[in-house]
Simulated scan of single mutants.
Amino acid sequence: MRHRLLRAALACSAALGLAAATAPAAHAMPTAARCPKGHLCLWEGPHMTGRLLFNEDAHITKDGFNLREIDDIEPPIFPRSAVDPLPDDFGCIIRLNDQPNFGGAEQELDKFGPHELDGRRVASITPDCG
C-alpha cells in the first residue's frame, strides 16, 4: 500500500514538473503590445518588442490615407523597431525626425511592414508622398 502511494506521489510530481516545463513562454516574459492593422507603431525594443512608444491610426482606405503629422513629440522617444502601415503603391515614406517641427536628422520608413531602427531620437513624424 505504501509503495502504491509513493508511486502515485512520484507520478503526480513528475506530471506537474512536465506541465511547468511545457507551459507557454508568454508567462515567462511580458509580450509586446500589438499594433492594430493600419497603424504606425514604434516600439522600445528590436523586432517589435518592449513598450509601445507610439501608436497612430493612418486611416487607410483603398484610395489613400490620413496619417497626421506630429510636429512635437514631447518627451522625445527612442524606438528600436517600427511598423509602416502605408502600402508601397501609395509612393510614400514616413520620416522620423530627431528634432521638433520636422528638423534635424531623419530616419525613413520606406516600405510597408516592419522595420528595425537604431534607437535614435524621434521628436517629429511626417508622411512624405510623391
Rank of each mutant, 00 (worst) to 15 (best):
M1G: 10
R2F: 12
H3K: 08
H3E: 11
R7V: 09
L10C: 13
A11I: 11
A11T: 15
C12D: 13
A15C: 12
L18T: 03
A20C: 11
A20I: 04
A21L: 15
A21Q: 05
A21K: 05
A21P: 01
T22S: 11
A23F: 07
P24C: 06
A25C: 01
A25W: 11
H27M: 05
H27V: 13
A33V: 03
R34M: 13
C35N: 07
P36A: 05
K37D: 11
L40P: 08
L42Y: 10
W43V: 02
E44V: 02
G45E: 06
P46T: 14
H47M: 15
H47K: 15
H47R: 15
M48D: 05
M48A: 15
T49L: 02
T49Y: 01
G50A: 00
R51Q: 15
L52D: 03
L53W: 05
N55S: 15
N55V: 03
E56L: 13
D57W: 03
T61C: 01
D63G: 14
D63C: 02
D63E: 09
F65I: 04
F65T: 12
F65P: 13
N66E: 09
N66H: 13
R68P: 00
E69P: 04
D72L: 00
D72A: 15
D72H: 12
E74D: 14
I77F: 08
F78Q: 00
P79V: 03
P79D: 04
P79L: 10
R80Y: 15
S81C: 01
S81R: 07
A82R: 08
A82T: 07
V83Y: 08
D84H: 10
D84L: 05
P85S: 06
L86F: 02
P87V: 02
D89R: 13
G91L: 11
G91T: 12
C92V: 07
I93E: 09
I94K: 12
L96V: 11
N97D: 06
N97C: 06
N97S: 10
D98S: 09
N101Y: 08
G103W: 13
G103I: 04
G104C: 04
E106M: 06
Q107G: 02
E108S: 03
L109C: 01
L109P: 03
L109E: 09
F112K: 14
F112T: 05
G113H: 15
H115D: 07
H115Q: 08
L117Q: 07
D118M: 10
R121I: 04
V122P: 00
A123G: 00
S124P: 11
P127C: 09
D128C: 01
D128T: 06
